[in-house]
Design a protein around this nucleic acid. Structure first.
Length: 479
RNA sequence: UCCUCCUUAGCUCAGUUGGUUAGAGCAUCUGACUGUUAAUCAGAGGGUCCAAAGUUCGAGUCUUUGAGGAGGAGCCA
């Protein structure tokens, strides 16, 4: 029977025969094969007595090759591992030619993350990316686990959307018209009536509006799917294609929304600290190594696992926009005009530098900002009684910035309608969204959480392109 | 989209004021090695200096344009 290395190492049966499949990470001293099968970051040491094997066979045990090993599990004579396989049979399943391997990142040495990105099809074989992708998968499981055990239903909102009124950013067009010869209307515009859906369609920028309608029937729902933004943004925190988690809750106000978001984040992070210890330890060491070459002020104040525990065990700081403005106005960098954008008065949109100051310098913990000025937020957010703020909230994380954006939704038909008029949101397009406010409308709330930003935080990585298998960014859709 | 920086061997990088045959470490190959852990030791091979144009007696080095990448800003998750 076939065994994974993870299962062998977690419950080793000494003197038992094992069949193991994997890829050669190293072949030292013509005797020790370090074998990895992806099930864990740990390698299995396989010892061959080379006098009993053909040289031609041993020559094929090269770095990167896929092999099958049969042998008995024994206590290791060497240090560095507790058990090892004494190999009685080796089969080379897929040879990796050393001449070819040396041109790739499979060669056993350190590579820059940029170089690994150029060979994204091979980078999962490295310790770093193996660890990241296992953690990503476990986080994803924890997301579903959390919602399922808290009575949420998973809904699949459409990926192709007919409305361009969601207002969350530039959209990718979806069409099967012949782009070299598009049908025209009498006025010369493209005639989308002849397109596949008979109208202009795009890839979704958010499942929120559809999720809202489902919350108003199923109670608590969430989405977890791909999301597309055609923004020309070229930063370490943006992707054109990313995965977003959007819970939506009926009969829930902003306080309940914040409670849930905080509890949710803590749950999924604590799940991986329990279930991904080896991978987290590796990433923590890698980070410490990397930071040695940085000036002290750029180093993170805590090692990775301590940072995760800190977030799990401490309350997020909840601060209203108005309080935040006061703090910023009276802050040293503002008084000394160190900010590129000096905060003058209430109503200003917070820049990255302000958010970073609040999270990394002032509070030194995750911060939830709420009750933003209505003018700088979206049409669907619930207007407060002061008539100038809305029940919006953003969760800001150190090093990542905004990880969650959410709000209590405007449930009052008249208020929503006039807000849409005011902000020029197409009511004909969103008739169905407005209509939910006519039939048993209720207080409801939700948020969007960028999954990759969560993985970024959980793994301590610095660039969002390194926490998704094949990143899509402006000018890049390789692989 | 804007600002800054980078592009030299398979990889990471050095290359002085513009000067003769462009260097190092790792990786690869060959040999040695029966307890290695990024194995070690000896030897060998390996270059369109991102591309094009220009300045110059002479360009890896200077200028212009272009391509690709990184960091930051904006937009946001």
């Amino acid at each position: 029977m076939k065994s994974t290395i993870a299962s062998i190492l977690s419950s080793p049966n000494l003197h038992q025969d094992y069949n193991v499949y994997g890829w050669v990470k190293a072949f030292r001293s013509n005797r020790f094969i370090a074998l990895n099968d992806g099930s864990t970051i740990k390698n299995l040491q396989c010892v061959v007595d080379f006098e009993n094997f053909d040289k031609s066979l041993l020559d094929q045990i090269t770095i990167g090759s896929a092999i099958k090993i049969f042998g008995v599990l024994k206590e290791s004579e060497g240090k560095g591992q507790s058990v090892e396989i004494e190999v009685s049979k080796v089969e080379v399943l897929g040879l990796a030619d050393t001449d070819e391997v040396k041109k790739t990142i499979l060669q056993p040495k350190r590579h820059s993350l940029e170089k690994l990105r150029e060979q994204a099809h091979l980078r999962v074989r490295t310790n770093t990316f193996g660890a990241i992708m296992r953690i990503r998968a476990k986080l994803s499981y924890a997301v579903h686990d959390y919602f399922n055990s808290n009575g949420f239903f998973y809904v699949n909102t459409p990926i192709i959307t007919g409305s361009d009124a969601e207002g969350a950013g530039e959209m990718f067009k979806v069409t099967n018209l012949n782009l070299k010869d598009t049908p025209k209307t009498t006025s010369g515009d493209i005639n989308f009536k002849e397109d596949f859906f008979g109208k202009e369609t795009n890839l979704t920028v958010s499942g929120q509006l559809e999720a809202e309608t489902y919350a108003l029937g199923l109670g608590n729902v969430y989405t977890f799917g791909p999301t597309f933004r055609a923004e020309n943004s070229n930063t370490s925190r943006h992707l054109a294609e990313f995965w977003m988690i959007e819970p939506e809750m009926a009969f829930c106000d902003l306080d309940g929304n914040m409670d849930l978001a905080e509890d949710f984040i803590k749950h999924v992070l604590s799940y991986i600290t329990e279930h991904c210890q080896d991978d987290l330890e590796f990433l923590e060491q890698r980070l410490l190594q990397e930071e040695k070459s940085k000036p002290e002020k750029d180093r993170s104040p805590m090692p990775l696992r301590e940072k995760l525990d800190f977030v799990i065990n401490n309350q997020f700081k909840r601060v209203s926009y108005t309080e935040a403005i006061d703090i910023l106005k009276n802050s040293k960098p503002n008084k000394k005009k160190k900010f590129d954008y000096v905060i003058e008065e209430w109503g200003a949109d917070l820049q990255s530098e302000h958010e970073r100051f609040l999270v990394e310098k002032h509070f030194k913990c995750p911060v939830i900002l709420f009750d933003y000025p209505a003018k700088i937020k979206a049409f669907y957010m619930r207007l407060n009684d002061d008539q100038k703020t809305v029940r919006a909230m953003d969760i800001l994380f150190p090093g990542i910035g905004e990880i969650v954006g959410g709000s209590q939704r405007e449930e009052r038909f008249d208020v929503l309608k006039s807000k849409m008029e005011e902000l020029n949101v197409d009511q004909d397009e969103l008739w169905w969204y407005l209509e939910t406010r006519k039939f048993g409308t209720c207080v409801h709330s939700g948020f969007g959480l960028g999954f990759e930003r969560l993985v970024l935080f959980a793994t301590g990585m610095g660039n969002i392109r390194d926490v998704i298998p094949y990143p899509r960014t402006p000018q890049n859709a390789d692989f």
